[in-house]
Structures are given as structure tokens and as C-alpha cells.
């Protein structure tokens, strides 16, 4: 009988908020900022007044105590509109990220694992990636009725190949890991191998990529709305607000700067979160102490 090898290794550290923030300042900052913006979006109806209420008397008022961020050319409150804009942006960002992650994960797993399917699916993906995403979206939207759903679909299509490529690359590298060979030698069959050994190891890069897709979806949505190919003009999205304010930029710059700042801040929060997660979840970087 061999002696018991010493298993005395550090006891698991108890979770402490202070340590967590100190270790991942980027995640903490991005996360808190994003959480605030999400709360603003969710409780927009409590925070802000009616974003659609016209008040022709009070057109293009500068920021003041009554209209924190001023009013636009129809006298609508820019603060209320920007707060409701968070809703639209976040819905677009999060749903695009979620949908394209799910689709991308499925296709990526299949491509990375079954090499015969790979050749076909990847050529299709390459084809989609060759189409400029904004043009594809405009084409789709002009062919149908503008609306939130169609905007989301239009953005998802060009984003999916990006996720597929990431997942596929990860799966290919996992496939050659000794622990996969070890599992096969131990009699693990394909389905279980994918579910138990491959899938969990794709999660970290997928989540990171998901945050980038989320940020880029919000920017594309704003861009589409600005071009008039996004959500209907009456919906207060940041892109719409900026588009409508642009004629009056010189007399009422706040109509553009305020929603612009919201958009920049949101994208920044999501990207910070993504960068932080990447550093945290990438084992090669994490091992660097």
C-alpha cells in the first residue's frame, strides 16, 4: 500500500467582495456601469416622463432644471427619450448576443467536431461574412416592415459567422487535448463527449465573444436607425434621436450629444466587461499570477 499523498492544498478561499473587485477591476467597473444602465432601461417608465409627449411651445430648450437634457425640435424631453432609448439599445444588444451565441455555438460545435459538415457550413459562413452587414440589414429592412424584430434578425445574421468561427476554433483546439483522447479511451461516446467535455470548455470564449457582439449590435442598431433603416422613427432609440437632432446640431447640440454619450457609455461598459472576462477566463493569462 502506498502512503497517502498529501492533499493539503490551500483551503478554498471564501468569497469576498473586496478581493473580487481588487482582482478584476475592469469586470467590476464595466459590470456596475452596465447594471446601472440596465436598471435605467428596465425602470425607464418610473424614471422618465412620456418620451413621445409633444410640446410645441418648448421646442429646442437648452438643458435646465425642468428639462435636464433639454428638448428637441418637437419639444420632447431629451432626458426621457434617452432613458427610453436605453431600453431599445439593450434589448437589441442582449437579444442579438443571445441569439447569435446560441446559433453560433450549435453550428460551431458541429463544425468543429464533425469535419465533413465543417467544409460546407464554413463556406456558407464565409459567404455571409463577405456581405457588408449594414447593407444586408438595410436590404432586409426595406424588403419587410421596419420593426425591432427585423432589426434584431438583420443584425444577427452577419454576427453568427463570427461566433461560429470562434467556437469552431476552440472546439478544434479542445479536440486535440489529451483529456479528450483520454475520455475516448475511457469509452465516452460522441454525444456525452460533446456535452460533458467539449461544451463546458467553449463557454468562456463564447461569453467573451458574446459581449463584443452585444456592443457591436448596439452600435449597428444606432447606425441603422440613424440611416432611417432601423426601428420606426417614433420609437425613441438613440440612433433615431441623433438622426432627428442632426439638422439642429448647431443650435441644439444636446439633442445629439446626450444620446451619443449614453450610447458610448453603454458600449464602453459592455466592452470593459468583455475585456475583464477575457482576462479572467483565459487560463493562459490567468496563470500569469
Amino acid at each position: 500500500m502506498t502512503t497517502l499523498a498529501d492533499t493539503a492544498i490551500d483551503p478554498p478561499r471564501r468569497f469576498s467582495l473586496g478581493t473580487a473587485i481588487r482582482r478584476n477591476p475592469t469586470i467590476a467597473f464595466g459590470g456596475v456601469l452596465l447594471a446601472i444602465l440596465v436598471l435605467v432601461g428596465v425602470f425607464a417608465h418610473l424614471i422618465a416622463g412620456d418620451p413621445l409627449r409633444l410640446s410645441p411651445v418648448n421646442r429646442l430648450r437648452p438643458p435646465s432644471e425642468r428639462w435636464w437634457f433639454g428638448t428637441d425640435q418637437f419639444g420632447r424631453d431629451v432626458f426621457s427619450r434617452s432613458v427610453y432609448g436605453a431600453r431599445v439599445s439593450l434589448i437589441v444588444g442582449i437579444s442579438v448576443a443571445a441569439i447569435s451565441c446560441v446559433l453560433g455555438l450549435l453550428l460551431g460545435l458541429v463544425c468543429g467536431y464533425f469535419r465533413r459538415v465543417d467544409a460546407i457550413v464554413m463556406r456558407v459562413m464565409d459567404g455571409i461574412m463577405a456581405i457588408p452587414s449594414i447593407l444586408l440589414a438595410i436590404a432586409l429592412i426595406t424588403l419587410t416592415r421596419p420593426g425591432l424584430t427585423i432589426v434584431i434578425i438583420a443584425i444577427v445574421i452577419p454576427e453568427v459567422p463570427r461566433i461560429v468561427r470562434v467556437v469552431r476554433a476552440v472546439v478544434l483546439s479542445i479536440r486535440s487535448q489529451p483529456y479528450i483522447e483520454s475520455a475516448i479511451a475511457g469509452g465516452t461516446k460522441n454525444a456525452k463527449l460533446l456535452w460533458r467535455h467539449v461544451l463546458p470548455n467553449t463557454m468562456a470564449p463564447l461569453i467573451v465573444q458574446g459581449t463584443y457582439v452585444c456592443a457591436s449590435a448596439m452600435l449597428i442598431e444606432a447606425g441603422l436607425s440613424f440611416l432611417g433603416a432601423g426601428v420606426p422613427p417614433e420609437v425613441p432609440s438613440w440612433g433615431n434621436i441623433i438622426a432627428q437632432g442632426r439638422t439642429f446640431f448647431q443650435i441644439a447640440p444636446w439633442t445629439i450629444l446626450i444620446p451619443g454619450a449614453f450610447l458610448a457609455l453603454t458600449v464602453l461598459a459592455v466592452n470593459l466587461l468583455g475585456d475583464g472576462l477575457r482576462d479572467r477566463l483565459d487560463p493562459r493569462l490567468a496563470r500569469r499570477l
Binding site: 489529451p178 483522447e181 475520455a183
Partner: peptide, 15 residues
């Protein structure tokens, strides 16, 4: 059955 060289990569880190 088999035993691998690198004990760091022969075990799935997430199980």
C-alpha cells in the same frame, strides 16, 4: 486504457 504524459492537460479542467 491509457495514462498520458502531461497531467495538466490530460484531465478536463471543468469536471
Amino acid at each position: 486504457q491509457t495514462i498520458f504524459q502531461d497531467p495538466y492537460s490530460a484531465l478536463n479542467p471543468r469536471l
